[in-house]
Design a protein around this nucleic acid. Structure first.
Lengths: 190, 190
DNA sequence: TTGTTTAATCAACACTTGTCAATATTTATA
DNA sequence: TATAAATATTGACAAGTGTTGATTAAACAA
């Protein structure tokens, strides 16, 4: 038991997830039927109901799994003294995205769920709130809101572009790029 | 045009909302069908689709409306100098609940949506974040998280109890009660 | 008040949903 | 390997879904 779940379960879920991700690239969740997912995943429709209550339930649970992974990484990079280096954190996050490129792209893309992105932003917000006074010289207060919205929305935009463009850069390259943009803005490098 | 919508639309939506609220008191959203709502509201099932895409769409939009009203009230009580009196704000919020007792009770009750409550909390959180240093002597930092979670969860609990118990107290009484509990704790009054 | 616009109803439709019991298959493990 | 346990498949079912076009009724504006 590699993942605490029957191999068949893992396989089935992976197939269904891939199918949902593909469909989400084409149309919103409300227009996707269980039948479509099952058909595209090439599993029996009844099998779907062995794992999820309905399409919305499936989407919500996949979102939650992603959020949890995301959160775990962010939290693991909170050193006791306050802030730590940005690069290792970003690097891990981009690796997470790369490992789940299809799903992540779908959740955050054209037909993504705004509520999901809000939750993502809030995780980053917590992190910023905790580190802002050390990591960056932001005084908090009104400025902080703009600061964190800028970073989170900007990052999501960059991630979408990266996933959309076929992930030509490595996770490390992306992490370095984003770190630089956060800390120094978008001035051209020599 | 009293509300910028055809009177028939207002009537239909009110009926559907009431029906959904009643059903939500009995079972979770995922177990409620469009047919049930239409039947209980005594409208044609087709009419439902004139207004909402499906059951989830309906619930989400009702939630959003409540959140917006809630937010508007909270924001309207942010004076320029920072914090203002707690009582008038609470009073308005309890009036809002009273005006929408059925729906509010359903959204926040046994079969309520955790995500909805989270959003509610976040509105209060913003408010607290803005006023904490003046309104109360909280130093921010770690304490703040506990502080605001205590207040928000506590308030939701009180509201559920109030709506559940048939709203025997007036909005003003509830506002006064909650204000006292927030500022001075739950010591008995003479 | 009258004419125009908009909303609600109704019946019908092909399709999807969620569930079931029976069965077959895969997995873990003794 | 043989066995028990867990998972997936199949086919079938009643119920619910979302949409349509034709019709009726209500609301609005001049």
């Amino acid at each position: 038991m590699a993942e605490n779940e029957d191999r068949r379960v893992r396989k089935t879920k992976k197939l269904m997830t891939k199918a949902l991700a593909e469909l989400l690239m084409q149309k919103p969740l409300s227009a996707i039927s269980v039948r479509e997912v099952a058909e595209l995943a090439d599993i029996n429709r009844g099998t779907f109901y062995l794992h999820y209550r309905d399409i919305y339930d499936m989407a919500r649970r996949l979102q939650d799994e992603m959020l949890e992974k995301f959160d775990r990484i962010v939290k693991s990079h909170t050193s006791r003294e306050g802030a730590d280096e940005l690069f290792p954190l970003l690097s891990e996050l981009f690796s997470l995205l790369a490992e789940n490129a299809e799903l992540a792209g779908a959740l955050v893309g054209r037909n993504g769920d705004a509520a999901f992105m809000d939750k993502l932003k809030n995780i980053v917000r917590e992190k910023c709130l905790a580190d802002a006074h050390i990591m960056l010289n932001i005084k908090s207060g009104g400025e902080f809101e703009y600061f964190y919205n800028y970073i989170t929305s900007g990052c999501i935009g960059v991630c979408v572009a990266w996933l959309d463009g076929g992930m030509r850069e490595t996770s490390a390259q992306m992490a370095a790029l984003v770190e630089r943009m956060i800390l120094r803005g978008v001035q051209a490098v020599s």
